[in-house]
Design a protein around this nucleic acid. Structure first.
Length: 483
RNA sequence: GCCUCAGUAGCUCAGCCGGUUAGAGCGGCGGACUGUUAAUCCGUAGGUCGUAGGUUCGAGCCCUACCUGAGGCGCCA
């Protein structure tokens, strides 16, 4: 833990616990997690999962002040750090001075010092970060975000900010949110009747981005290796524990990378993020691991996770991802037990997309580790993916993780002008909208690849949180945009 | 968007076959407590049973619609 220069006359509890400056007089500030026996305060300031025990002499403090030491009240404590006489902790602060910084009214405060459901806490998003679980989740989320930048910076990538408002709606990545300043009560019309978007702010119809990929390709074909990391918006009515209307996505794009280079990068990237959290947030992981184990105690064995959280993370970093082609995956599925027993709800045929149940079988039963499926039929994939020599498949790849499914989708891009144009026509993508995308191929194009990683899905996997709404501070989902 | 399940005190839940005044634990409030670890002990308050209709002598319980939440599916990251 580095010393912070901007400490506002206090020392952070994470630093106290890691350095144990016994004998020194220090000031800590934080929120009360428990007040026991009129004497012991468990104080947490969010700097880490650990609490500092603050010991008071109640008869030496003002009675009114002691009454204000309540659950989740905020206070400042100054005293001498000492070895603890109690069994539960090594050190404690013998307080000489206590200042209440923010009182709490427990009569109306919704949180309680006990296990509360994530569904309840989600409705109290302004308080939930004060709990052990969400504190751990959001410290880890920060670490993953930081590790993203560190990984790419250390590997020679340039961070490219792609636009959040975009005029292109030709990407086919889902329904978009319209951005407009027009008055919905009084929309300008052309003489023929439709809405006149040329009268809108940008002189054209605009939307929130569903992907920065097409713009990232511009960067890759000039800077070599770039990545984007920003918010992404999908106006899909997706009501699942794995979807958000507003989420964060990381999209690296690399010149001269083929599909295999792309898969190598994707695997190394996933492993790096996980390893970074193991190295920097181990105590938070332990807390989440323990929470999951307690939660699963009451479940029947077959519903429990096959591994503990940390065990599973290590398993992913220590083993190569399985790599198979779509064609092999279909064969494997057709030879599988659930297929033969008719246990799959959806058919498995070459040319159909793999369903969630099929992906789960591959990842959780067949291989029991992350799987990268590549070379999908061109009909079920996007127009910009590179056509393979068989003329039937494209150089697409999906990285599938246990529990959360697809965490990465990517491809080698079609760099051949004529091929791309043909695919655009087949997919009914208007070429006049993407004239610049086509020109990239016309003027000094290059083979290149890239992928998109769903940031929250990765955080979900690393923290073990089962609902994606619990790994983003303020989730946006259909019908819900509170806070 | 489709399907399934749930909604009873602040939270988590029980409530039999439709039958008197709806219960528990935790939390809150009042008090005790100087070595506690989700502290403990004593006392106490707290409910329009999601909403609106309906069936019935009688509805927390049955029926219909709606709202909210969760899970599954589709779409995907």
């Amino acid at each position: 833990m580095n010393k912070c220069l901007f400490m506002a006359q206090r020392i952070e509890i994470a630093q106290v616990l890691s350095q144990s400056p016994i004998g020194q007089t220090i000031t800590v500030k934080g929120w009360v997690r428990a007040f026991r026996n009129n004497r012991f305060i468990a104080l947490n300031d969010g700097s880490g999962p650990g609490n500092l025990q603050v010991v008071i002499e109640a008869d030496q403090l003002d009675e009114e002040l002691v009454k204000k030491i309540k659950y989740h009240a905020c206070l400042s404590a100054t005293g001498v750090l000492s070895a603890s006489q109690g069994a539960g902790q090594d050190i404690e602060l013998l307080a000489q001075e206590i200042d209440i910084l923010g009182e709490n009214n427990l009569d109306e405060y919704p949180l309680q010092p006990k296990r509360q459901t994530v569904e309840f806490l989600r409705q109290k998003a302004h308080f939930r970060m004060r709990t052990n679980t969400f504190g751990a989740v959001f410290r880890i989320r920060h670490s993953v975000a930081f590790a993203v930048h560190k990984f790419y910076n250390d590997n020679g990538f340039f961070y490219l900010h792609t636009p959040i408002i975009t005029g292109s709606d030709a990407e086919g990545a889902g329904e978009m949110f319209r951005v407009t300043t027009l008055d919905p009560e009084n929309l300008p019309r052309t003489e023929a009747g439709p809405i006149d978007w040329s009268a809108d702010f940008f002189g054209r119809a605009t939307n929130l981005t569903v992907s920065g990929q097409l713009q990232a390709e511009i960067g890759a074909l000039a800077l070599g290796k770039v990545y984007t990391f920003g918010p992404t918006f999908r106006a899909e009515y997706s009501n699942t524990p794995r979807h958000l209307a507003e989420f964060w996505m990381i999209e690296p794009e690399m010149a001269f990378y083929d599909i295999h280079d792309n898969m190598d990068l994707a695997e190394a990237f996933c492993k790096y993020l996980i390893q970074y959290v193991i190295d920097h947030n181990y105590a938070d992981l332990e807390a989440l691991d323990q929470r999951l184990q307690e939660e699963e105690k009451n479940l029947p064995k077959e519903k429990r996770r096959p591994m503990g959280l940390i065990e599973q993370l290590r398993f992913v970093t220590d083993n190569p991802f399985e790599r198979i082609t779509y064609t092999d995956a279909v064969q494997l599925l057709q030879q599988s037990k659930p297929y033969k027993k008719g246990q799959f709800e959806f058919p498995v045929d070459w040319g159909r997309d793999l369903q969630a149940e099929h992906e789960r079988y591959l990842v959780e039963k067949e291989f029991q580790k992350p799987v990268i499926v590549r070379n999908y039929p061109k009909e079920i994939k996007a127009f910009y993916m590179r056509l393979n020599e068989d003329q039937k498949t494209v150089a697409a790849m999906d990285v599938l993780f246990p529990g959360i499914g697809e965490v990465i989708g990517g491809s080698q891009r079609e760099e051949r002008y004529d091929q791309l144009l043909e695919r655009m026509h087949e997919a009914h993508v208007p070429e006049e909208d993407l004239w610049w995308y086509l020109e990239l191929r016309k003027f000094g194009g290059a083979p290149h690849s890239g992928f998109g990683l769903g940031f929250e899905r990765m955080v979900q996997f690393i923290t073990g949180m089962s609902n994606i709404r619990d790994v983003i501070a303020f989730p946006r989902t259909p019908g819900s945009a509170d806070f």
